Amino acid sequence: MTCLFVQIRCRPGTAYEVAAQIVLREIHSELYSTSGDFDLMLKLYVPNGEDIGVFINNNLLNIDAIERTYTMQTFKAF
């Protein structure tokens, strides 16, 4: 499995709505509210062999109130 961290910027006033929709989709390992340029930080695991871009598009980016995301892929735990 590939571990990803996705920072999510929501339309103003919609962070709780976006978080609730993510929780209902059951794709996350951890989900946090954050300060700064992004509203939420999502940790998730993509199954081996799955296209990461397609997975993100199909499972996350179709939430209407998401304005922008920034995805970081991990490679090795130390």
Rank of each mutant, 00 (worst) to 15 (best):
P47L: 05
K43D: 00
H28W: 05
R11I: 04
H28Y: 09
Y70A: 08
K76A: 08
T74L: 10
L61Y: 00
I22D: 02
R68T: 02
I8P: 13
I66E: 02
S35P: 06
S33P: 12
A77S: 03
Y70G: 01
D64N: 05
N58Y: 10
E50D: 02
G36I: 00
Y45S: 15
F78T: 01
A20H: 14
L4F: 05
E67F: 08
N59K: 00
L60Y: 00
Q21C: 06
P47M: 10
D64F: 04
L61D: 01
I63V: 07
E67Q: 15
I63A: 01
Q7M: 15
T69A: 04
L60H: 03
R11D: 08
P47E: 08
T34N: 00
E50S: 07
V46H: 07
S33D: 04
Y70H: 14
I56Y: 11
G53F: 03
V6C: 13
F5D: 09
S33M: 06
L4H: 11
M1R: 09
R9A: 11
E30T: 03
Q7S: 14
V6P: 15
G13I: 01
L61S: 02
F5A: 08
V54E: 15
E17N: 11
R68A: 10
D39C: 00
P12A: 07
L44G: 05
A77L: 02
